[in-house]
Amino acid sequence: MSADVVKIATGGVKKGKNQGLKVVTANDLFTGAVIYWSKGDLWTEDLSDALAVEGSDALTALEKAFADEKAAVGPYLMDVEPDLSPSGRGRLRETIRDRGPTIHPEFGRQAEER
């Protein structure tokens, strides 16, 4: 199976294919906060700073993220649009992870914009 169609975890119990633009996401080990793999092999809490990659580059980024166990928990590949907004089947889930619970607009990153 080539790298671009390999089955991958896509968050929760869901599985998907490694097709299209991806960002590696995980939770911060210490706080549980949602984090994204960025350029320079660092984690960021800002999705707009994430590294968007495809195919074998996505798998390489995921492998590096897995190796950084001292900072992150449960990395996986999420679908993104070219502007880095969440896309695909996990769009709502990833939007909620990024922004915060829809029932508590006062919590999460969405609160910072209020």
Partner: peptide, 28 residues
């Protein structure tokens, strides 16, 4: 031990779950 890297997440996860600690979407 988890924070120091002495044990992996795979080793730690069942231990934290036995103490009621889950990891959800935004937080523990």
């Amino acid at each position: 031990r988890r924070v120091s890297g002495a044990i992996t997440e795979d080793e730690f996860k069942p231990l934290r779950l036995m103490n009621g600690l889950y990891l959800q979407l935004h937080a523990y």
